[in-house]
C-alpha cells in the first residue's frame, strides 16, 4: 500500500483507536463482549506472529500456552471468591513462559517440517495432560465462578464483572503487547531474529546466537499467548482442554496469514476478520465449518498475502505480487542453502 500516504495511514489508525475507545459507549453489551473476545484472539495472533512472521518458525503449539495460562487462573481461583490478579496474572504468564522455554528448547533443535511436527506433538501432550488426568477436571474442564480481583488493600481498582471495565483492560493490555512486539521487532534483537529467518548460516557466521535469539522470541511469544489465555479464561469463566488443542493453534495461524504475515498489526486485523466471519457463518449456515475450510483453502491459493493483498487487488493497484510475501519463504530457503 505504498501509494497511501503516511498521513492518511496515521489518520486511519487514530480513527480506529478512537472508535475502539468509544465502542462501549454506544454499542450493545453483546458487541462489547464480542470485541473483547476478538481482541484477546488478536493478542494470541500477535504473539504467534512474532515467531512465525519474524522468526520464520511455524509453531503449532501456541494454543497450549494460551490454555495453560487459563488453567493456572482456573486452579488458583477459590470456590466462591475471585483470585487476586496481582498473584494469578504473573503466575499464569510465568507458567506459560516456562512451558514455552522447555518446549522451545527441545523444538528449536529441529528445523522446517520437523519443527512443525514437534511443536504440534508437545502442544498435544499438554492437551492430553489436562484431558486425561484429574488436574483440571479432566475433559469437563473447570469453571471460574468469580472473576479475578484487582484490588489494593481491599479497595477494588477495577471490577472485571463489569463488561466495560473488562473491555478496557483487554484493550489496554492489547495495546501494551502490540507496543512491546513493535519495539521488539525494531530492536537489534528483532533484526537478529529476522536475519536468522532469512539466512540461518549467514546469521550464525556473523556471530548471532541464533538458538538463543529464537528461544527468547519463543518464550516472549509464549508469555503474551499466556496473557491472552488468562484474560480469555477470565472472560468466559470456563477453561476446557480444547483451549489447548491444536485446532485453535491452526485457527490462529489462519488469522496471522489472513491479516498479513510479518506485520505487527496484521494479525490483530486477521483475528477480527476471522472471528467476525465465523460469527456470520455460524448464524447463516448449519455446516459453516465446511465454508470456513473452503475459505482457508481459497486463502492459500488466491491471497497468500492476506487481506492487504485483497485490498490491493480490489483497487487494481500496480502492486501485484507473485506468490507470498518474502517473509514466510524462510523455512524453504533455509533447507536449500
Amino acid at each position: 500500500m505504498a501509494h497511501v500516504s503516511k498521513l492518511w495511514r496515521r489518520g486511519a489508525f487514530a480513527l480506529v483507536i478512537a472508535m475502539a475507545i468509544a465502542l462501549p459507549i454506544f454499542a450493545p453489551t453483546y458487541y462489547v463482549q464480542f470485541a473483547a473476545k476478538a481482541m484477546l484472539m488478536g493478542m494470541l495472533a500477535l504473539s504467534l506472529n512474532l515467531v512465525v512472521g519474524y522468526g520464520g518458525l511455524v509453531s503449532l503449539c501456541h494454543a497450549a500456552f494460551f490454555g495453560l495460562a487459563g488453567y493456572v487462573l482456573g486452579l488458583m481461583t477459590p470456590e466462591s471468591a475471585g483470585a487476586s490478579m496481582w498473584l494469578s496474572l504473573p503466575a499464569a504468564v510465568l507458567v506459560a513462559g516456562a512451558a514455552a522455554a522447555v518446549i522451545g528448547a527441545l523444538s528449536l533443535r529441529t528445523r522446517g517440517i520437523y519443527f512443525i511436527m514437534v511443536t504440534l506433538a508437545f502442544g498435544e501432550m499438554l492437551f492430553y495432560l489436562f484431558h486425561d488426568t484429574k488436574i483440571g477436571g479432566g475433559s469437563d474442564g473447570l469453571y471460574i465462578y468469580v472473576k479475578p480481583q484487582l484490588a489494593i488493600g481491599g479497595a477494588t481498582l477495577l471490577d472485571l464483572e463489569n463488561n466495560h471495565a473488562f473491555y478496557y483492560l483487554a484493550l489496554a493490555l492489547l495495546a501494551g503487547a502490540t507496543l512491546l512486539v513493535r519495539e521488539l521487532v525494531r530492536s537489534p534483537f528483532g533484526r537478529a531474529l529476522c536475519a536468522a529467518r532469512d539466512n540461518e548460516r549467514r546469521a550464525l557466521s556473523l556471530g548471532f546466537p541464533v538458538f538463543r535469539v529464537r528461544l527468547t522470541a519463543f518464550v516472549i511469544s509464549g508469555m503474551i499467548a499466556g496473557l491472552a489465555g488468562y484474560l480469555s479464561a477470565a472472560q468466559f469463566g470456563f477453561v476446557a482442554p480444547q483451549m489447548l488443542g491444536w485446532h485453535l493453534s491452526a485457527t490462529v495461524l489462519v488469522m496471522v496469514v489472513l491479516g498479513g504475515v510479518g506485520t505487527v498489526l496484521g494479525p490483530i486485523v486477521g483475528a477480527f476478520a476471522l472471528i467476525g466471519l465465523e460469527e456470520a457463518l455460524k448464524a447463516s449456515f448449519e455446516h459453516w465449518k465446511l465454508i470456513k475450510g473452503l475459505i482457508i483453502v481459497a486463502l492459500v491459493f488466491l491471497a497468500p498475502g492476506g487481506i492487504q493483498q485483497l485490498a490491493a487487488l480490489s483497487r487494481a493497484a500496480p502492486v501485484e505480487r507473485k506468490g507470498p510475501p518474502a517473509a514466510p519463504q524462510s523455512t524453504e530457503a533455509l533447507s536449500n542453502v
Binding site: V58, G112, A250, L253, I296, L299, V300, P328, E332
Partner: peptide
Amino acid sequence: RDHLAQVLL
C-alpha cells in the same frame, strides 16, 4: 511453496 501454506491448506 513454504510449509506455512501447506499447513493452512
